[in-house]
Measured scan of single mutants.
Amino acid sequence: MGFKLLSKLLVYLTASIMAIASPLAFSVDSSGEYPTVSEIPVGEVRLYQIADGVWSHIATQSFDGAVYPSNGLIVRDGDELLLIDTAWGAKNTAALLAEIEKQIGLPVTRAVSTHFHDDRVGGVDVLRAAGVATYASPSTRRLAEVEGNEIPTHSLEGLSSSGDAVRFGPVELFYPGAAHSTDNLIVYVPSASVLYGGCAIYELSRTSAGNVADADLAEWPTSIERIQQHYPEAQFVIPGHGLPGGLDLLKHTTNVVKAHTNRSVVE
């Protein structure tokens, strides 16, 4: 069995187990497998329904001669939608809004960016022009300005110390501490036991640490421990890039980060 097929099978099995364990909360999309990078042309966006009122959005972007996937989250909030992270750029984010209108038909009224990198804030200006209120932590807003990236308009308070959590509509926002970046936030959907790890969490097929220019490698494993301790009931975990899975993604990420750190020390 090929690795790609095995990865998709694991996603399907995880979703099936969740649907059985929580039949009222989960209505997993039966329309197909989780979209992969090879299936999404740059400039297009796919939506994948995880649970009743919960979707991931998947886009792709060219970077350094390669094409990478990027995940975000959409959560229903009454007759409105909360968006977590842009679709990595203005063109993708405009396509995301169009796809949401086509498939869901509810307005996106608020959006949260989970850290300051372009795959999370690139497209904020498109959201703002569409009347979406954009939010991020003060740290993310400051770092985005320093980096020359787009800056969300509103500040999220109460997320300055490791372990801080605040309720934001249908989700809980959690600051686990520094990891992929010093400002990275985690998003949890309690009604569906869905954990969105953003770039602080890796997919299972990833074996290298990737972009760690703004990471705190020493603190990252401790931050992941905080996530595990705060959300032990999480059933569906979405990484910032690639295929979702279960809580095993947290341990896998820790292993990859520690291996990278150990290699760096040896070198």
Rank of each mutant, 00 (worst) to 15 (best):
I40K: 10
D214M: 04
Q103A: 08
D118A: 06
L127C: 14
R226F: 09
F116G: 13
L249G: 02
V265C: 08
S139I: 13
Y196A: 14
L159K: 01
V28A: 11
S56Y: 12
L127D: 00
D85Y: 00
A213T: 14
A178N: 15
S7C: 03
L9V: 11
L204Y: 15
I227H: 01
G65P: 11
E150S: 15
S56V: 11
L185R: 00
R110A: 11
Y68C: 05
S137F: 15
F3T: 11
H57E: 06
G169D: 07
D248F: 14
H154D: 13
N71S: 06
Q49D: 04
I224W: 00
T60D: 14
V266A: 07
L47K: 02
V194W: 02
E233P: 14
S162L: 05
A21N: 03
A133G: 06
E219C: 09
R110E: 04
V212L: 11
P35A: 09
G131M: 13
A129R: 09
D29S: 05
S205C: 07
E219H: 15
P221D: 08
H154Y: 02
A234F: 14
D52N: 07
E33R: 10
K4A: 07
S113R: 01
A178G: 09
Y12S: 13
L10A: 10
A98R: 09
A51G: 11
N262W: 06
T140G: 09
Y48R: 06
G32L: 09
S205K: 13
R206W: 05
D119Q: 01
K4I: 15
A213N: 03
V194Y: 02
T93P: 01
D125N: 08
A95P: 14
I50Q: 10
V54L: 04
G242V: 01
W88E: 01
I186A: 12
S38T: 05
E147P: 10
W55M: 10
P221N: 05
R76K: 13
V187T: 14
G2P: 08
G32R: 09
V171H: 00
V212D: 11
A51Q: 07
Q229W: 11
Q61N: 11
E203R: 03
A192D: 06
T222Q: 13
S56C: 12
G72D: 00
E172P: 00
G158N: 15
T153M: 08
L106V: 09
A218Y: 04
